[in-house]
Simulated scan of single mutants.
Amino acid sequence: MKIVFMGTPDFAVESLEAIHEAGHEILMVVSQEDKAKGRKGIIEKTPVKKAAESLGIPVLSTKRLREDRDCIERIRSLAPDCIVVTAFGQILPKEVLDIPRIAPVNVHASLLPRYRGASPIQQAVLMGDKESGITTMRMAEGLDTGDILVQDKLNLEPGETAESLFLKLGTLSRSSIIKTLEELEKGGISPIPQKEEEASYTGIIKKKDGFINWNLEAIVIERKVRGYIPWPNAISILPNGKSFKIWKADVVEEKREALLSLGKIQTEDIEKYLAEKMQEAYIPEEGRGEFFSSKDKKELFVTTGKGLLKVEDLQVEGKNRMPAAEFLRGYVVGDGKKR
Rank of each mutant, 00 (worst) to 15 (best):
M1E: 12
I3C: 08
V4C: 05
F5G: 05
P9M: 02
P9R: 00
A12Q: 02
A12I: 04
L16N: 04
G23N: 10
I26T: 11
S31F: 01
Q32P: 03
A36H: 06
R39D: 08
I42N: 07
I43Y: 01
E44Q: 03
K45P: 01
V48Y: 01
I57W: 14
P58L: 07
P58A: 13
T62N: 06
L65K: 10
D68N: 12
C71K: 09
R74F: 11
I75V: 15
R76L: 08
R76M: 03
C82L: 08
V84S: 03
V85S: 09
L92T: 08
P93K: 15
V96T: 12
L97P: 11
D98Q: 10
I102G: 04
V105D: 10
N106C: 01
A109N: 02
P113F: 15
A118V: 13
V125F: 05
M139A: 02
L143Y: 03
D144Q: 03
G146T: 08
V150Y: 02
L154C: 14
L154H: 01
N155W: 04
L156Q: 08
F166M: 02
R174W: 00
I177G: 02
I177N: 03
K179L: 14
K179Y: 00
T180I: 05
E182F: 06
E183N: 10
G188D: 15
E198N: 09
E198M: 06
A199S: 13
I204V: 15
G210I: 15
G210S: 14
G210Q: 11
L216H: 12
A218I: 14
I221A: 12
I221K: 08
P230F: 12
W231D: 11
N233W: 06
I235S: 14
I235R: 15
S236D: 11
S243F: 09
K245P: 13
A249L: 04
V252H: 04
E254K: 11
R256E: 14
L260G: 09
Q266F: 08
T267W: 07
L274F: 00
K277H: 05
E280I: 00
P284W: 15
E286A: 10
E286W: 15
G287I: 07
R288E: 10
E290I: 06
F292V: 13
K295F: 12
K297P: 01
E299H: 05
E299F: 01
F301T: 04
T304Y: 04
G305S: 14
N320M: 06
R321K: 13
M322W: 11
E326N: 10
G334E: 12
G334K: 14
K337D: 13
K338S: 13
